[in-house]
Design a protein around this nucleic acid. Structure first.
Lengths: 335, 335
DNA sequence: TTGTAAGCGTTATCAT
DNA sequence: ATGATAACGCTTACAA
């Protein structure tokens, strides 16, 4: 059932039907009524594909995230979805799984399908050509993860500052033998957080170059592995505090401690980053830096939509506040 | 840059270009080459919207889930995405949040946009008219959650049997004072799991009508609330084991115990359902019934795609095995 | 093997 | 205020 059927049934021209549907031109009450009548009688619904072709829009935006298995990204996704829903726009989900070829695959797909825009949370930290091409053809806004060399609207937090605050919190307890589990070196957030840790370290008089740094991949398992490396040594050589660059890895190190009889926080303190839901569920609860993931998603979507609406958004980049949330994994070092 | 530009540049007709792109007709090596040449030179990419209109397909399927905050659904989503990716099909995410009007909203949206199909995991358990209309216009396959009154292909597990197995496991430890935290009464899974529990109960000689059942909503918080109700009584009145209808709620009760000094599993045993990632991360690890969520997603997507390919699938409904995974939350009752 | 032309279902321009 | 009609960019008979 097409718009022509409706027109016929209502005894008007198709253009008139279109006009009432989109209220794009004045129509007499009489005809409008007849048209609306016909529409419900026939159960007519404008064909999305046709409409898209004509309007040259897809009414859909892509969300590219590295790893839906990390609740942080889910929170972001929720935020995005929440605003899209009010704009009759679909959300197409693309998990890159930290793999360049997947990112490239989705970049091509989204471009070919002429999506209105994409919200991109990089798991790579580097500009693939596919991504660059995407950014040329489509509106792209970055969330959480900045990509050096790509000047695009960005929504995220001041990772360096947040990391510094977190590290200060544990250093203030008196810890001096600390270690860090960092994120993938190529990622902006990882680099920023590390920088923040170092700042706090020097501020507390400890030489950052002396503190062991093992790089994880932001996944839980890598946290566990890092813990094994850091903690699987004679007790006197162990750090008394571990700064983990995200919660998933922090939970991994917590796991390691629990299964190896290492007391948290009695023997080692742990701090994470993100404040994902699990963090309040493990025990002891994970002390961490909370990122407003949901709000990040919302703002990113809002920025994108205002671009699409043709407006130049008031704020094209925004930095949200990360805050310390204290739970049970940080205490004074053992004496 | 359209297909006409390519045709012009290559000095052939548009139909020829189309033919080489879709290899839908034999072409001489010579022209094919020229066409391919022109395509890369111009950086041409067929317009998805136009193609969709012409082919009358959207090359996209919807995934409706109640709550992306529950990792179980994320696992399903991953499964779906994994197969869609190999078929150049987009995944549009729709979280209903257990709210009827959202489900209706998305049902309308997906239908209007002429999505190829939708994979539906109900959070309602009941057929809204929107959903019924969706099912009339689009191919839909149900996953995890059956909807009585809607005869549609289904992928899920034998929830009753799985619940029985789980309950048996705890009853075999000697528990007789048990309580259950069930799911939303309207949901098929909730009802099935409850039925399974009851079967196990009678098999162990305990009257199911004597066991307290408090209904949750499959979210963590409701598990905590249920625990408060069940456990916030004189110690002698407390159940020694709690059967939770899903992991999120089980974690909630575990939380409650931990924060209230109730030993798990020394004083109360807990078993969950699903085996989501958190379950192995809490401590003690949650004993639960594992559902192959990822595989569910995969199979649902495969079934859907084979429908779309025009084949009547070999199996239009499939039941996957749920298995007991024993971790630390179940032990013998205190004596 | 290649070209011509007729749609796919809308929207938008321009007359009327 | 309403009606013809030409796009939108592609695919697919059908002709040549």
């Amino acid at each position: 059932v097409t718009i022509r059927d409706v027109a016929e049934r209502a005894g008007v021209a198709v253009s008139t039907v279109s006009a009432v549907i989109n209220s794009t031109a004045p129509t007499s009450d009489a005809t409008r009524h007849r048209v609306e009548q016909a529409i419900v009688e026939l159960g007519f619904e404008p064909d999305g594909n046709a409409r898209n072709l004509r309007r040259q829009r897809a009414y859909a935006v892509g969300l590219m995230v590295p790893d839906v298995t990390n609740p942080f990204f889910i929170l972001v996704a929720r935020g995005v979805e929440d605003v899209l829903r009010d704009h009759d726009t679909m959300l197409v989900l693309c998990s890159t799984d930290f793999e360049p070829e997947r990112e490239a695959h989705y970049a091509r797909l989204l471009r070919a399908r002429r999506l209105d825009g994409v919200i991109h949370d990089s798991g790579l930290g580097v500009v693939s050509t596919a991504l660059r091409e995407l950014a040329e053809a489509n509106r792209v806004v970055l969330v959480d993860e900045r990509i050096p060399g790509l000047e695009l609207p960005f929504v995220g937090s001041d990772n360096r500052r947040a990391a510094r605050i977190g590290a200060n919190h544990v250093l203030d307890q008196g810890h001096r033998k600390v270690a860090v589990v960092s994120g993938p070196k190529a990622l902006w957030t990882a680099e920023q957080r590390l920088a923040g840790y170092r700042e706090a370290l020097v501020a507390h008089g400890v030489n950052p170059d002396q503190v062991p740094v093992v790089a994880g991949d932001y996944r839980e398992e890598s946290g566990r592995a890092a813990a094994a490396k850091l903690l699987g040594v004679p007790e006197s050589d162990r750090p008394t505090a571990i700064l983990a660059a995200n919660d998933l890895m922090a939970v991994g190190v917590l796991q390691y401690c629990l299964t190896n009889g290492i007391g948290v926080p009695e023997q080692v303190s742990i701090i994470g980053f993100d404040d994902i839901p699990i963090s309040s569920l493990v025990s002891p609860g994970l002390t961490t830096m909370r990122q407003p993931a949901h709000e990040m998603g919302r703002t990113a979507a809002e920025i994108l939509l205002s671009y699409l609406a043709g407006e130049e958004p008031v704020r094209s980049s925004v930095t949200l506040e990360a805050t310390l949330v204290v739970r049970g994994t940080v205490a004074s070092p053992p004496t």
